[in-house]
Design a protein around this nucleic acid. Sequence first.
RNA 1: GGAGAGAUGGCUGAGUGGUCGAAAGCACCGGUCUUGAAAACCGGCAGGGCGCUUAGUCGCCCUCGAGAGUUCGAAUCUCUCUCUCUCCGCCA
Length: 425
Amino acid sequence: MLDLRKVCANIELVKESIRKRGQDIDITELVSLSERRRELIIKIQNSRAELNRINDEIKTAISKNDSTILENRRSDLKKFSQSIKEMEKELDRVEEEINNQLLFIPNIPHFSVPYGKSSEDNVEIKRWGKKPEFSFEPKNHWDIGERLGILDFERAAKIAGTRFAVLKGMGARLERALIDFMLDIHINEHGYTEIWPPLMVNSRAMIGTGQFPKFKDDAFHIEGTDYHLIPTAEVPVTNLHADEILDINQLPLKYVSYTPCFRAEAGAAGKDTRGLIRQHQFNKVELVKFTHPKSSYDELESLLNDACKILERLNLHYRVVVLCTGDMGFSSAKTYDIEVWLPGQNTYREISSCSNFEDFQARRASIKFREGTKSKPEFVHTLNGSGLAVGRTLVAILENYQNEDGSVTIPEALRPYMGNKEILS
RNA sequence: GGAGAGAUGGCUGAGUGGUCGAAAGCACCGGUCUUGAAAACCGGCAGGGCGCUUAGUCGCCCUCGAGAGUUCGAAUCUCUCUCUCUCCGCCA
């Protein structure tokens, strides 16, 4: 959420940033509502001050047993407080409307974010490793996985539906190994603290990180409750510190959390219907940081590196792109996507998305810190990134490490997690 | 699921209709003392919002889990909700 005062003081900047994202949101009503809000507040406050003054008179009248003043004042007060209540009702309506509108305005992109309309305009900034060469035609991961008997989409469809998968035998083991492998690196080498959060959250948490109200249809909801299946660990982990003032000496706080993620994938009908790429349920190891505003962009770089490290250990070729203004997520001020090379599909595929939200989420969830012991609390900056999407990493391994006979070599770094097995066949 | 108790500042906790945005203690910050530290003593220490001719060691307003109500006036009384704890039941 943007700061109302800043929006009103920088109307053109906000309009421009909405336009750069390729969106069309009219903020003129918001600005006039803000003015109305200020008028009402001033009126109400003056009235209340007067009300309080009269109340003090009544107090003294009672202590002095002066019944004349008492009766005079009492008869007025009721009407007076009634009119205040009416103004307050209007103020409530105005503030609710302001809030509704603010919740739908996306974050302002960082100045370093390239302008663009779609993913076509994202800018590649880094490439690591190289594409593996094959003496045969590399297969898709679903063909490899089904032949090895470790992926089963048909039975998943039977028990749940489309966009689900069953992992079996060494497939399940590989998924579990990857989770452990990623967690160990982030915890032991990168200094993150592990979190095992609830997999369902209330709507307040979903508002806090920006999924609600705008993207309500993307989440699974448990009917008759206020529980929502988390679309990413970002939601519970970021909201862990909602309504808190964090100790500046503890910043940056770094958390890593493995969770299943649930997405309705509304609007993605027909996209990536085959394979593991786009599922209603998938596993992800998520990195979350709470930082001082001054260092958040440095922390974004190191978060990106932490995520890249996993692919490097697995020796998987990847590239990093900066998302352009038109392709960036709603809450983000700057996002890097890590895209892994998938030879079976002859393309780079997003495997991690690392973002700095600046104070956009912190303001929604009210997460603050204090610069000095006597300073006013300020909002922290929040960041997160996948470290990594587990299912897509499994896909990358199957496709990049496949052999001509249909077997798959297990990356060396992963073997200790796979009972020292070297090959899936 | 049943019964009971509770929710107050960073923490502990007092307060049952006006003298309360709030005692006391702890923690923290500043000062005095000290070679330094500790102790002792003195002082400070909640969040949010609005205003300004002087942007301040400034003025005002709101907030004692959330919301509604009673009252001239609510931390205090009533109702609803949320959460926490204890006991019982059930259960991985």
